[in-house]
């Protein structure tokens, strides 16, 4: 019974993945229980086809140096770009390098966004580097990183 439901869910996941033509990762077999492991190195390798990325001052990554609560860490990424048809930011990837699944989000932009900026809140399991990996329309890869120290404490 449980097993059947599990496969039913798996089936629907595959179906949806097929409908959305934007997966940058080939292997998306989702586990419903247990760590969904995916290292930062592996992801970087797949996305950049082994080329890696260049740290660039064009990329601004804003995150707190110390987060008093790993469950909600605000992250903002801004990339200097004219956002025209010929020169725009294609994707902003955000990684939590030491999370079991290092991938947080990949945001695929278009010139219609007019501004290459994205923000969200992420969960960090421990003190680690947060990395913004940027895919430009010319195929180059830029990056920026920041270390975030996660403290656990407080009352309640």
């Amino acid at each position: 019974m449980q097993r059947r439901e599990f496969f039913k869910k798996m089936g629907s996941v595959v179906a949806v993945s097929a409908v959305i033509p934007m997966m940058s990762f080939a292997e998306e077999a989702k586990k419903l229980v247990g760590p969904n492991e995916f290292s930062y190195e592996k992801a970087l390798n797949i996305i950049t086809s082994g080329k890696g990325a260049t740290a660039s001052p064009k990329v601004t990554l804003k995150a707190p140096e110390i987060a008093e609560n790993g469950a909600v860490v605000p992250v903002t990424v801004e990339v200097e770009s004219p956002m025209t048809e010929s020169d725009y930011v294609k994707t902003i990837h955000i990684f939590a390098t030491k999370n079991n699944n290092s991938r947080c989000i990949s945001v695929h932009l278009t010139p219609a966004n007019a501004k290459a900026m994205f923000s969200a809140r992420i969960k960090l399991g421990s003190t680690q580097d947060v990395v913004a990996l940027i895919e430009m329309s010319d195929g180059s890869f830029l990056s920026a990183a920041q270390s975030v120290k996660v403290t656990i404490g407080g009352c309640g």
């Binding site: 997966m23 991938r103 947080c104 278009t110």
Partner: peptide
């Protein structure tokens, strides 16, 4: 105009902000 792949590392009650 924008698409996103999202994983479980995003905080509960997520907020996605773009332009």
């Amino acid at each position: 105009i924008t698409t996103m792949n999202v994983w479980e590392s995003l905080s509960a009650n997520p907020v996605f902000t773009t332009y």
